[in-house]
Design a protein around this nucleic acid. Structure first.
Lengths: 143, 143
DNA sequence: ATGGGGCTTCCAGTTGCTGGAAGGTCAAGA
DNA sequence: TCTTGACCTTCCAGCAACTGGAAGCCCCAT
């Protein structure tokens, strides 16, 4: 590859990776699961058009906001649907936001409990330990 | 199974599951990876002694605080080591606590960004949408 | 004896990649 | 011209921590 400047704007996978911010392996994986469909050069190399690269960058950004791959697929098809309703996008985002919030609450509960235990532990060379005592005596918290 | 009352205190897997709070499948999995080693009855059924059940409950509690299975294995061996130093437990817990805190920060960043975008989206039947605009134009956030 | 529930094993799937092996392609340097 | 090295290709395996399902015992009650 490494097309001769102006000839065509297609990029090889390495360049697409650099421009989109996704690892090469991830891009191949995304093709596998049908998120992108790059063209192919005569040598069998993937040839990413600007629109493909844009799509990859979109995916990178959506993933970095925590959307699952399937949610990304839905977002992508909304993005490409000129007749979409922003309400659909908003609903999807809101659901994801609620997921995030749930996880935060769960992690904060863990942090608080564990933080208290850590504070109470002497952390010296003796064996008695409030952390282990808690694990051994308290029932698991249902999530 | 279903031992005749006082005969022996061994439990079948279903009862061990109920008492420990772990699903049956999970207990089998924990045996697979060597976290518990229940005895076996003449019929091939697993026979959980009280100490096994206690171990399972310990695991359930530790998992519910977010420790990985490998961390649980370490905690378990510290628990069973009468000569342990609480400093080791504390160090492990502290590392995990830091992990949790990192995740919280990451999720809060997602929540804040996404929350702003959701607020700015009209959510009506028109196609223009700040959420998609962001995804399409902002580079992914490195984590 | 028959039905149901619980037990057994093993295999496959989940999510989102990531690493590695074996091999093809291409441009540049000796 | 040959060779090196950086690309690229495919395919297979593995991570975490389970979960579901199939096929088949075992045991007790009716």
């Amino acid at each position: 590859m490494a097309e001769t400047a102006s000839a065509s704007a297609h990029l090889a996978i390495g360049e697409a990776a650099e421009q989109s911010g996704l690892p090469v392996k991830t891009i191949r994986y995304y093709e596998d699961i049908g998120l992108v469909r790059p063209a192919r050069g005569a040598n069998g190399y993937r040839a990413f058009r600007p629109a493909d690269v844009h799509k990859l960058a979109f995916l990178a950004r959506a993933r970095s906001l925590g959307f699952s791959v399937e949610e990304c697929r839905a977002l992508l098809s909304l993005w490409e649907d000129r007749g979409r309703e922003s309400a659909d996008v908003k609903a999807l985002a809101r659901r994801h936001l609620a997921d995030i919030q749930r996880k935060i609450v769960e992690l904060e509960a863990m942090r608080d409990t564990l933080g208290t235990l850590v504070d109470r532990c002497h952390g010296d060379n003796r064996p008695d330990c409030p952390i282990l005592d808690d694990l051994a005596s308290r029932p698991a918290v249902k999530i």
